[in-house]
Amino acid sequence: MHADFAEVLAHEARSLAAVTDVGHLDGWRHRLVAHVMAPQSAYAKALRSDGEPAARAAFLDQWHDLLATTLVRVLGPGPAAGPATDVHRTALLIVAAVHGGAVLSRLTQDAGPLSASLELALGPFLRTAGRGPGSTGSGGALGTMAS
């Protein structure tokens, strides 16, 4: 696999393993923006790289699975229905938002578009999960998006 893909996945596996509640997930989101906006980081290089299609597909699949596993853990037990808590579709939107937001942020040379993309992808999940049992109740800045 492309070295930058492998480095990002290794880093994400460590970072996401430590995420157990919405506050941690919110913190992960902000750290991710910083990594992507550092031009020489493995994140920036991996997102810019065309790569071999098979390697890119494996990279995206593995990142998606890490995210989905994390979202299940953050959601915890108990009923949670609705689009915001569909962990697989939310994980897919997060992967898309990171890539699409990164392209827009490279154009504007500003983290704003990447942050806005991740906000739309993750905000509803954090607001919903933040209301669930076993949560710390912290939705970070996300709960203020529409207020």
Partner: peptide, 8 residues
């Protein structure tokens, strides 16, 4: 955000 989702 919607444009980010579209491009991604």
């Amino acid at each position: 955000g919607l444009m980010g989702a579209l491009q991604g």
